[in-house]
């Protein structure tokens, strides 16, 4: 069971990919089946079960896309 959970405001995402790169658990990736209103493939938790709720993704995100919850 995952210790953390990420919630996305995907319409804010500009697909810069910083969260994907800095996530220590490799939870995140682009949602290649979606194009948001800004024209990007937004991020998605591809492996949510690995999330520890460390919030590094939120810290590096320039666009307030991510909210993080932790146990």
């Amino acid at each position: 069971m995952a210790k953390g959970r990420v919630k996305f405001f995907t319409d804010r995402c500009k697909a810069c990919g910083l969260c994907i790169e800095f996530c220590p658990q490799d939870v995140l990736g682009f949602d290649e089946h979606t194009i948001n209103t800004l024209g990007y493939h937004p991020i998605k938790d591809l492996k949510p079960e690995l999330c520890t709720g460390c919030a590094i993704c939120g810290v590096v995100c320039p666009d307030l896309v991510i909210e993080v919850e932790r146990e």
């Binding site: 709720g53 909210e67 919850e69 146990e71």
Partner: peptide
């Protein structure tokens, strides 16, 4: 679960243009 990271109140909801 409790929220540990979210938009601060001192920012508006506006999407930035950067």
């Amino acid at each position: 679960m409790k929220k540990v990271f979210q938009k601060p109140e001192s920012l508006t909801d506006a999407k930035n243009h950067y």
